[in-house]
Every structure is written in structure tokens, then in C-alpha cells.
């Protein structure tokens, strides 16, 4: 990388920082318990809108993993999720009615909160419908992983988004608040992902899975990006560039091995398709607050004319555990044993 490009990326990083500083004014604190964060705590950062249905399981799942504190941003929820979260002892909550899109899909808000509370902590930035899975997650807490990463001077971990879906239309079995969404959305695509390198930021661009297969067969370039780097040892200099797909400085994006080996990686099980999706797609389309003119939601609405798209196909796999995902080659233990 030449000096010019390095400097350009530096400016870009400064720009996102300034933007995050500016956008902090849109946030109003509801409950600030960040004083209770201990030095060794692992943090979860998330934005949400009308996710009350998922929040109890979301909190349980990550508490069990060993998360010490949740930093949450509410974007105009009207379903009681805000009230529910404000009562939780390990949640610090902000709210905003401002545009999600103009905050770069919530990233500016989270960047600000990460700048403020993240440095020195391992921070996991996920949406409420994303469940993080890592090697040995059934027998070791997240701290085992972060300690191991620390010992190897590794600062970030890749976790591709793996779309989970139910069989036979989404509303086949209604999801109950507090349930494990993987009981319903337990299917996934194991081997239809395409990967390219993004040489500018040094990250990978991954597409594919059921959404590409069902909604974007004609225009696969527009299919959603699945590469994510949600787990980062936050530092003052870090900033998320484009959602959690890429970070700056770009060394943090080097989460893959180029010389034939495998680095350790996890997965984000994406439980978006739960029977609540059709209504959500209609709403989100009307709001037009999502990436690339909500193309994704438009594709959903037209792709599944029945309003309940069935993503299932005879070659879908049923989710068992992380070892299965490792054997299928979707994630890797790397040299962690």
C-alpha cells in the first residue's frame, strides 16, 4: 500500500469519526449504566427497532455466553422493547427518532458509543436477530476465545452471516417471545457462497446463501453482503467503515489467511426469517430506510408473491451445532484446539 492510499484511508477514518461525533447529538440516553462496566467485561453493541419479540432470547443468549454489558440503541420502537430493556440491570440504552439511513444504517451511533465505551474491551457488534457462534461455544465461554485471541495478539474475528430459515413458509409455526429462534429457523445453505477480495479495505466480500438463491438469481451482484467482523478488541483508533463488514484501520480486516491456512472464525446465525418477516418487509419497504434503496426488502416482497417466501430446498441442511458448521467449512477452529 502506497503512501497516498494509506493517507486516503486515514482521512476516511477521520471522516467516519467526525461523523460519529456529529451524530451523537441524535442520541438520547434512556438508562446509562456504563459506570458499572468492569475493565475485563465483554460488551455487546446493537441497534434495534421493534424487536421486542426477540429481545429476551437475545439477552439470555449473550448473557450465557459471558457478556458483561449491553450497549443498545433504540431507533423509534413502538412495541415496548424500549421499556423492557430499560429495566434490565446490564443494559445501557439510548434512543433516537432520527433517520437510520442517514446514520449510515445505525453505524454512526454505534461508532460513537464504541468510541466512548469500547476502548480496551472486546466488543461484539450484532443485530438482535444475529446469534454469534464460535468454535467450542458449547463448552467454553466467550472469554476463553478472547483470552486466546489476546494471547495471539489477534485483534478481530470474522463471523460470516449465515441465513437461517424455517421449512415451508415462515408462518408454519409462530415464534413465541423468549423462545429459541433456532427451533423454528433451523435450516441453512451450506455451500453456495461466493467470495471476492476487496483490495481497497483488504476485507472479503461474501455473497450467496438462501437470499441470493431465492431473491437475486438475476442480479447476484446486488445480493446482500454476508462478510462480517463483529468481534473486535476495541481501540481508540478503530472505526466501523461499512456496517460491520469492514473496519479501519484496515489491518483489522485481515481476518483470513492468504497462504493456504485457516484462521479461526465464527458465524452469525441470522434468524431474520421467523414468520414475522413478511410484515416487517412491507413496513421496511415503506420506510425506505435500508441499504441501496431497500432493494433487499423490495426483492423479498416481489420475490415471494405469497408474502411468505419459502427459502427451503431439498439440499438445505438442518442446524446441529458448531462442529457441523466447522466440518462443512463455513467456519474454522484455526489453530485453537
Amino acid at each position: 500500500m502506497g503512501f497516498r492510499q494509506a493517507y486516503r484511508l486515514r482521512l476516511r477514518r477521520k471522516r467516519w469519526r467526525l461523523r460519529a461525533l456529529r451524530k451523537r447529538r441524535e442520541l438520547t440516553s434512556v438508562v446509562d449504566r456504563t459506570g458499572a462496566i468492569r475493565r475485563s467485561d465483554l460488551l455487546v453493541c446493537s441497534t434495534f427497532r421493534n424487536e421486542n419479540l426477540r429481545l429476551p432470547h437475545f439477552l439470555d443468549y449473550y448473557r450465557q455466553m459471558g457478556i458483561g454489558h449491553f450497549i443498545m440503541v433504540d431507533n423509534g420502537s413502538t412495541d415496548g422493547g424500549l421499556e423492557y430493556l430499560s429495566e434490565q440491570p446490564d443494559v445501557s440504552l439510548w434512543t433516537t427518532g432520527a433517520s437510520y439511513k442517514r446514520a449510515r444504517f445505525g453505524m454512526d451511533w454505534l461508532n460513537w458509543l464504541l468510541m466512548r465505551h469500547g476502548p480496551g474491551h472486546w466488543c461484539l457488534t450484532v443485530d438482535p436477530d444475529e446469534l454469534f457462534v464460535f468454535p467450542f461455544c458449547d463448552t467454553r465461554p466467550l472469554r476463553a476465545l478472547t483470552d486466546w485471541l489476546d494471547a495471539g495478539s489477534i485483534k478481530s474475528l470474522s463471523a460470516m452471516l449465515l441465513d437461517m430459515y424455517p421449512k415451508g413458509g415462515e408462518s408454519a409455526r409462530p415464534y413465541q417471545r423468549g423462545d429459541d429462534p433456532l427451533q423454528i429457523a433451523c435450516w441453512f445453505d451450506s455451500g453456495n457462497y461466493t467470495i471476492e477480495r476487496n483490495h481497497k479495505l483488504g476485507n472479503l466480500w461474501i455473497q450467496g446463501g438462501p437470499r441470493a438463491r431465492t431473491f437475486f438469481p438475476e442480479e447476484p451482484y446486488h445480493a446482500p453482503a454476508l462478510n462480517k467482523i463483529p468481534l473486535v478488541k476495541w481501540d481508540r483508533s478503530c472505526i466501523y467503515d461499512n456496517s460491520t463488514h469492514a473496519l479501519l484501520p484496515r489491518g483489522l480486516n485481515a481476518v483470513f489467511d492468504e497462504w493456504g491456512g485457516e484462521k479461526a472464525s465464527g458465524l452469525l446465525l441470522h434468524t431474520k426469517f421467523l414468520g414475522t418477516f413478511a410484515a416487517k418487509a412491507a413496513e421496511e419497504m415503506a420506510r425506505g430506510q435500508h441499504y441501496a434503496a431497500s432493494r433487499e426488502y423490495r426483492a423479498y416482497a416481489t420475490g415471494g408473491e405469497t408474502a411468505e417466501p419459502d427459502l427451503w430446498c431439498p439440499w438445505s441442511e438442518t442446524y446441529i451445532n458448531w462442529r457441523q458448521l466447522e466440518i462443512l467449512g463455513l467456519m474454522s477452529k484455526g489453530n485453537w484446539a
Partner: peptide, 18 residues
């Protein structure tokens, strides 16, 4: 584990092996 980290699984392309 060391072999997986240094040589990887032949013919596999994924998020942490490219």
C-alpha cells in the same frame, strides 16, 4: 490444529481461508 492453521483444508474457500 497447527496443520489446519498452516495448511488448511484443500479446496476450501471460506471467510477465514482465502
Amino acid at each position: 490444529a497447527v496443520e489446519r492453521r498452516t495448511r488448511g483444508r484443500p479446496g476450501l474457500y471460506m471467510q477465514s481461508r482465502f
